[in-house]
Design a protein around this nucleic acid. Sequence first.
DNA 1: GAGTTTGAAACT
DNA 2: CAGTTTCAAACTC
Length: 787
Amino acid sequence: MDVVSPELNSLLPDEIMDTEAIEDVPHSHSGTTATQSEPSGDTSVPMETDTPLATENLTLSSEATEHTQAVSISTDSMLSISSRSQIPISISSTSSPPLTLNVTTSGLQKLTAPFTISPANHQIILNKVASSQATEAAKSSGTPPQVIKQEGQKLLVTAIGKSGQPIVLQLPHTGSKPGVSQTSGDAKSPAPQFKVVAIGGRSELKPLMGSAGNQVTTLQAQQLKTVQIAKKTPVSSAAPIKFIITKTVNSKGLSPQASVPPVIAGRVLTQSSPVMPQRTISLSETHNTSIQSIPGKKIAISPLKTPSKVTVVSVASPTSNASQKSVALPVNVALGQQILTVQQSTSASPVKLATSQTTAQNIKPGQSVAVGGVGSSQFKTIIPLPQPNVQQIQVPGSRFHYVRLVTATTASSTGQPSGPSTSSIQTAKPMVVSTGAVRMSVPIVPAQTIKQVAPKPLTSAAQVVTTTQTQQRLIMPATPLPQIQPNFTNLPPGTVLAPAPGGGNVGYAVVPAQYVTQLQQSPFVTLASSSGFPAATGIQTQARLPLNGLSTSETTSRPRKPCNCTKSQCLKLYCDCFANGEFCNNCNCNNCFNNLEHETERLKAIKTCLDRNPEAFKPKIGKGKEGESDRRHSKGCNCKRSGCLKNYCECYEAKIMCSSICKCIGCKNFEESPERKTLMHLADAAEVRVQQQTAAKTKLSSQISDLLMRTTPVISSGGGRLPYTFVTKEVLEATCECLLEQAKKAEQTHQPQAEAERMILEEFGHCLMRIISSAGKAKADSASVSC
DNA sequence: GAGTTTGAAACT
DNA sequence: CAGTTTCAAACTC
């Protein structure tokens, strides 16, 4: 099942955690945006809303490089969003009435005619993306607002024009506010309405005022790519459906974009982004009420250490028990990261978007689909969940699966929003997912991406998930966490947050991807609320995170070292597994508590570490000051005897040189250090030798295989040996004896030489015939046996 | 594989 | 914040 077209992943920005950048964006989003990342002591759960409302609000906000951008969302309602450098936007909905909106915009952000309206299936197609010419044509100057009305459906297109300017497609809502509990009025509203607001360009994401109370969260000082989708899916099929898609793309090197004016009441007010490459946004939605109605179903995706392409998805649908929701977001994809399924994307053609649309509709309950990837890679996972109450999301590249643990069978009303606030979705329970910088590997790409996803559940309250690069790890409990409220911004992956006592039975578990893989492999494994986490014994993960200072490809290319902890219970930073936010798996540790079986202890340990050092789980290798190396140890080393030329030194281990903040003594790990150069030389030489040896082994093995294939031919059809293979040594000797015997016979009978030769040849012929006969018989026998 | 060295983490 | 202890990885033999 393809949720997102393959090319989408290729557009994902290769991102890395930038410690400094993280510092620059210190959780500011909480104050100005609706993300509400800061967990409050309020009993209202800022995470999710279980209130039954057929409204979903998805907000994606991502900071992406201008070259690679992709956002995909897939929910149980079959909503997938993909964004590319090109901007074909396609939205398909199979809900009743099925409604399809295809929008293609170029970098110039122009929506081009023709519009195709199919009354039969209630489809509105804007500027099909089938041909690239259409996209090119879209680059023309702005077009006047267009309004399409067709049987209660309205499509208002405004703010189309200049390059880099936002595209807004609005289908004015009839009046019901998303985020507010569905009323009969909503159900009565006959016309599905779509509101699509695409803000292109590299402007910073600005708050948007949704007409129906939906707003796009704001990320400050971030290069953002934001897609917000507010979908209102009423219980009634005829209920209005609303989409709000906001896309903001920033690219480094470009001048700051003008602030984006608010979008009010289905109107597009702003446009920005002077220069904007073509992007493609694909929205695929399937309105399947049966699927959408999932009480208490929640999915949380939290990015972890992996750089920045953050994926946060929260989905809650209260009305039905039937199915689960699957949300997949391509997040930051690091090279070589663990994936469950890999598909290669060979093309980035916008045409493929259609594939994603159709496939997205095939998402089945109980399956999770994760799509993501870097470059041509695409990761897709379909995971049959062992239990209906477990939802998991794989974030490609993040190496972690986020499993929503839901034990409650009924929707919970806990965690109601504390009240209207600056949040774009006032009625929503904000779910904040932060991606704190956690021991990142060496940034492969300096760009950072922030994606905000504010899925609006089918409940009355909107659900907001916000992710910022400043917070890379976030586990969002659906309920307050009075006991343990670690710094969400630094919460390491693998953390399972227990629900508050009596506060509900839902919780989130951030589970390393491999753990989920194990779950898949073991049908008997079940997940429940954190309180009774019945994780199978020994279930641990081998999910690995990039080691500090090592590129993702480096780290992923080799397995993580198992720890050998004996006294720390793997719950202190001594343990590399724990420090890297991983569960122990296949380790040699004793009395290990770094697993799901000891989630409580683990949580406490995490909290302790964070209390001691809020940066404990942030990457140690970050960006250096201006003029210094791009990478440096955040704290610096303190080596005294190793000369910083052994792996004792964290700088050296990270393959970076010591910096001014290091307090090492006798440091030899600097640029001009002859010792360092020598070591590097030796290391390089050793690496070359290893590569050569590997290549030689591979070649030799191949040669041997070829030789074996040639020397031991096999009859493929019958599985028997070729006739001449029956000429064994014994056969050959027997044949020779027969020939000699024939020669003796001719000699004894005084036959002339010619006759003797004839007799010998005749005997030889007989021998061959017998050999052939035997071979044929053996073949027949073999065939009969095989049959 | 056992023992030593090392420096980060934890502790006081 | 500094000094000390603990710890596990890195290293040596």
